[in-house]
């Protein structure tokens, strides 16, 4: 994905520029693209990508100034909350051995955004990009729930097919909706550098719904995953629970991918859960630890990107990986002492 470092305030957007950037919400459609591209594209002059021209390293003062203006607050909050919720959801994704489902659904969401733009450009029918992302993500999830055994193929092949089809489709459709190739990724996925207020609201809303459903269905998800046949005999709606879980993944992934990009979303949905499951011996604690690791990866990753001038999404993913690398030897020591 395309990504960028956060701009330090010496080169940051003025309030007027911010207004211009956020005023043109991508959600409004391709007509808003030029101003939105300012907000989301790494090469945009307003984001000050020419690092050589910069005087000194970014400072806390600059960051706090940008925070007060809302430039950094929203993406940091978005990264923290997306990391937290995806961390929790990721525990179930990893336990279901379906980590690449997240990647495939994310790509499908990107295709949905592209199609939404294409529909508006071609037929002048306004389609909310997030709506397109949701529809395609849910469709991909429904296809993934097909029983591949009947086709004498392993389930992974379907994940690969969806990933491939959605990726190719997004690029082909994107070619018709963007003038420059570097615009496509930011239009489809966002960049985590700046987050539009609408996207932040959607991330919060989808996250709260996801957490609420997990809280209500926790015991059902647990039994249905650990021993699905035993659960069915106990009259649990195992199939409905499975569909609900993957619907949550589709919604959360499509909304967060739109806001912060595919790479950090995939990282948050997999890596914190891996670290947590390596570290603790109880699912409920794994959920807490994964939420903490995910949230920290989102927040600290942004700070790391700001102060060391790295791309945000990649920094957040790297932070998550660092947590995992720290946790693995600790888990080994803990297992050794327990044995």
């Amino acid at each position: 994905m395309t990504d960028a470092a956060p701009a330090s305030s010496s080169e940051a957007l003025s309030e007027q520029e911010l207004e211009q950037a956020f005023g043109g919400d991508l959600g409004a459609g391709p007509g808003a693209q030029p101003s939105a591209t300012v907000a989301a594209t790494p090469e945009a002059p307003a984001m000050g990508a020419d690092r050589s021209a910069r005087e000194g390293a970014p400072s806390w003062k600059e960051f706090s100034h940008g925070w007060e203006l809302g430039i950094y607050r929203d993406p940091v909050l978005c990264g923290v909350f997306a990391g937290l919720v995806l961390g929790v959801l990721g525990v179930f994704v990893v336990l279901r051995r379906a980590v690449f489902v997240t990647a495939a659904v994310s790509q499908a969401a990107g295709l949905g955004v592209a199609l939404a733009f294409l529909v508006e450009l071609t037929w002048h029918v306004p389609v909310p990009p997030v709506g397109g992302a949701l529809v395609l993500a849910l469709t991909a999830t429904a296809i993934l729930s097909l029983r591949m055994q009947r086709m004498r193929l392993p389930s992974e092949t379907l994940v690969g097919l969806i990933y491939l089809g959605a990726s190719a489709g997004a690029i082909l459709v994107g070619d018709r909706i963007a003038q420059d190739s570097h615009d496509i990724a930011s239009i489809l996925f966002g960049t985590a550098v700046l987050v539009r207020p609408l996207d932040l609201s959607l991330v919060f809303a989808a996250g709260l719904v996801t957490l609420a459903v997990i809280a209500v269905c926790y015991r059902g998800f647990l039994f249905a995953g650990f021993d699905p046949e035993g659960a069915r005999v106990h009259r649990l709606p195992v199939r409905a629970l499975d569909l609900l879980l993957w619907a949550l993944v589709a919604i959360e992934v499509s909304v967060t991918t739109r806001a912060i990009g595919a790479l950090p979303v995939f990282a948050f949905a997999v890596v914190p859960a891996m670290a947590a499951l390596a570290l603790v011996e109880r699912v409920r604690w794994a959920l807490v630890v994964a939420a903490v690791f995910g949230g920290l990866s989102g927040g600290l990753g942004y700070l790391f990107a700001f102060f060391f001038e790295f791309p945000v999404g990649a920094s957040q993913a790297t932070l998550a990986l660092l947590f995992l690398l720290v946790c693995l030897p600790i888990a080994r020591v803990l297992r050794g002492s327990a044995a």
Binding site: L222, G230, A231, R235, L236, P237, R282, V283
Partner: peptide
């Protein structure tokens, strides 16, 4: 793969007729 304590597994025996 599920990290569960022995007591968590036994607790599932009481989980019957779950519904939304």
């Amino acid at each position: 793969l599920y990290p569960l304590l022995a007591r968590d597994v036994v607790r599932m025996g009481l989980d019957r007729k779950w519904s939304f």
